[in-house]
C-alpha cells in the first residue's frame, strides 16, 4: 500500500527529489504570502474588530498548524515504529520544533489579539488553553529527544511518546472544553472569518502549509547531510 512512498524513502532518492522541489515550493510559498497580505489589507476593516482582525489571519492558521504538524509527527512516528525507517525518524524529529514554533506563534498572536478585544493578555478560553497544553506536549517531546544519546533509540522512544500524546490530545481537548464551560467561559475565540475575509484567510492557510513543508524538507535534508558528514568524518 505504501510502496510508492518507500520508493522515495531511500535517503539518496529523497535528497534528489526534495532538492529539485524545494525552489519551486519556496517560490509558491512567497507568492501565496504576497497574495494573502494583499487580499487581507485590501479587505474592508471588520465593523467590530477593525484592523485587529488581521491578527486573526496570522493566528488562526498558526493554531490549525499546531495540530496539523502534530498529526504529521504522529504519522512519521508510526512509520518509525513499524518500518524502522531512518527517514521517518528524522521526519518526526524535525517536525516537533516547527510545530512548537507554530503553537507559540498561535499563543502570542492570540494574546496580541486578545489585548484590544478583551482588555487582557490572556484569557483561559478553551481553545487557548488546549493550545497551551499542546505547546507543552511539543516541549516534552523535544526534551526527550535531546536527552537520549543514541539516535535510533531516541527515535523509537519518542515515537511512543508521540503516539501516547496523539491518543491523549482529543481527551485533553474534550476536558478543556468541559472545564471552560464549567467556569462560565464562553468561546470568545470563535473569531468569525466569513464573508470578505474567507478568501484571504484560505490563501494565508495555504501559505502556512507551504511554509511548513519547505521548512520541514529543509530540516530533514540538513539532518541527513549532517549524518553523511559524520560518517565521512569516520563516526561508527
Amino acid at each position: 500500500m505504501f510502496d510508492w512512498l518507500f520508493r522515495y524513502a531511500n535517503p539518496a532518492r529523497f535528497m534528489g527529489l526534495s532538492g529539485a522541489l524545494l525552489p519551486w515550493l519556496w517560490s509558491a510559498a512567497l507568492l501565496t504570502l504576497a497574495t494573502a497580505l494583499y487580499l487581507g489589507f485590501s479587505a474592508p476593516p471588520d465593523y467590530q474588530q477593525g484592523r485587529t482582525v488581521l491578527i486573526l489571519f496570522i493566528h488562526v492558521p498558526a493554531a490549525i498548524m499546531a495540530t496539523n504538524v502534530y498529526a504529521c509527527m504522529v504519522v512519521a512516528s508510526l512509520f518509525s515504529l513499524i518500518n524502522r525507517h531512518i527517514l521517518a525518524d528524522v521526519a518526526a524529529r524535525t517536525a516537533a520544533p516547527l510545530g512548537a514554533i507554530f503553537t507559540l506563534l498561535a499563543l502570542i498572536t492570540g494574546s496580541l489579539w486578545g489585548k484590544p478585544m478583551w482588555g487582557t493578555w490572556w484569557v483561559w478560553d478553551g481553545r487557548l488553553t488546549s493550545t497551551l497544553v499542546q505547546f507543552f506536549l511539543y516541549l516534552g517531546y523535544i526534551a526527550l529527544w535531546n536527552a537520549i544519546e543514541d539516535e535510533t533509540r531516541a527515535a523509537r522512544i519518542c515515537a511512543v511518546l508521540a503516539l501516547v500524546g496523539a491518543v491523549n490530545i482529543p481527551i485533553i481537548k474534550f476536558s478543556v472544553d468541559w472545564w471552560a464551560t464549567l467556569h462560565q467561559g464562553e468561546s470568545i475565540m470563535s473569531g468569525n472569518l466569513a464573508g470578505p475575509f474567507l478568501v484571504p484567510f484560505l490563501v494565508m492557510m495555504l501559505f502556512y502549509m507551504l511554509l511548513f513543508v519547505c521548512l520541514w524538507l529543509t530540516r530533514i535534508r540538513t539532518l541527513i547531510l549532517e549524518r553523511r558528514l559524520r560518517s565521512l568524518m569516520g563516526a561508527a
Binding site: 516534552g140 517531546y141 526534551a143 526527550l144 501516547v164 491523549n168 485533553i172 476536558s175
Partner: peptide, 10 residues
C-alpha cells in the same frame, strides 16, 4: 514531569 504533566491535564 515535563512529558507526563500535560498528559495528566484531564
Amino acid at each position: 514531569p515535563l512529558i507526563v504533566l500535560p498528559l495528566l491535564v484531564p
